[in-house]
Design a binder for these strands. Sequence first.
DNA 1: AGGCAGGCGTACCGTACGGTACGGTTCGAA
DNA 2: TTCGAACCGTACCGTACGGTACGCCTGCCT
Lengths: 215, 215
Amino acid sequence: MPLTIKVNEETFTPRQQAVLTAALDLLVENGDGLTMTAVARRASCSKETLYKWFGDRDGLLTATVQWQAAKVRMPQVDRSHLNAKALRLSIEQFARDLLTVITGEVSITLNRTAVTHAAQEKDSLGTIVLDNGPMAIRRRLKPILEAGRDARLLRFDSSEDAYRTFFGLVVRDVQIRLLLGDKSLTQANVTDNIEADVKSATDQFFALYGAKATL
Amino acid sequence: MPLTIKVNEETFTPRQQAVLTAALDLLVENGDGLTMTAVARRASCSKETLYKWFGDRDGLLTATVQWQAAKVRMPQVDRSHLNAKALRLSIEQFARDLLTVITGEVSITLNRTAVTHAAQEKDSLGTIVLDNGPMAIRRRLKPILEAGRDARLLRFDSSEDAYRTFFGLVVRDVQIRLLLGDKSLTQANVTDNIEADVKSATDQFFALYGAKATL
DNA sequence: AGGCAGGCGTACCGTACGGTACGGTTCGAA
DNA sequence: TTCGAACCGTACCGTACGGTACGCCTGCCT
């Protein structure tokens, strides 16, 4: 048995991963360019092999999205010794990770693909993308928020609401504009402002949920 | 010349509007169901007529999106006598309009269509949707915000930043989750919570940008 | 060496759909 | 009444693409 990498109960051989990489490249280059023939040619494999491995076009698409989405691994944040400064740095880090992921070309492509997929009454890709994007961040941020509350550094009733507000403060209209191809939002334009946006969002989050918040 | 309705420099006869309605219905029913044959059959017209009126499939799609997007007209808000209470009601109304539009089936369909379109290196639909959705709200909200600042009811440096924060507080992760077909967000689920979300977002907005805000 | 599984490349098939052509019908104008 | 423009319905064409079949090669196992 060859070396495999385990991803969400799915394993892919290196050769298969090369195929998935080719598929993703085609997706990024040209959203609807993912034809079986194109993937086969790009990956130097036969269509028959594609169908043997992934079943059909949808299986290949799903495998590609799943594999790539799972690769978006954000750095863990140190949760020990939670003082005010550490908490703030953690929050900032989450904001930075979220913005960085969301504005990345791969993420935009995956989200567009999943949205297109959802427009055809199929939500499997949407679930995958949500699970590995926003929900992944949420799963890791929530414990931090609750630790912050336990330490009397934050105040909120529902950690779910707190997280969703955080999401809104950080993402604002950036994601939807990128998905819609807003030309006034160039890639450089966004990345250059990430740090400022991170700080602003964090400030606002603490203003709303900090221990001394007036709300 | 028959009765026409003017929409963004484009005019459509009633018959053409019937065709566009059919096209939108097909889009809503089944995102990728907009085939020329299907539209022709639904609208009881010939394909030749479709091509004569709209040029090609993309023209029909663009006309449909443009026409529908422009129809989303949100009620104007009274801007006279701007006291604290009126300002708050205005902001709430904008939040309510924004959430109502964004969570509507038609809006979801149009956004999905535009995202799919943007995935094919075409951003015309994205521009249209942005212009008639978020940007339309922004154009109308900004003067209100600035009037609020002039009246010493709000504090902010950039009205652009204030608007985008407002957008984030209101929309949060609702839109992207709807676009991705998140099953845990049923239509009823969302609409039932609109009022609470509106109030919460408005409270938070005033906490951040109100005259007595600590930020 | 022989054989066999896995996989490459190519050719092929069926279908769906964008786009065109054309005969027949309606309807208003002269 | 006649003419012509607009338009409907249908048939048709070409192509792109999903999916299948098959011949050939390679490399591993015995």
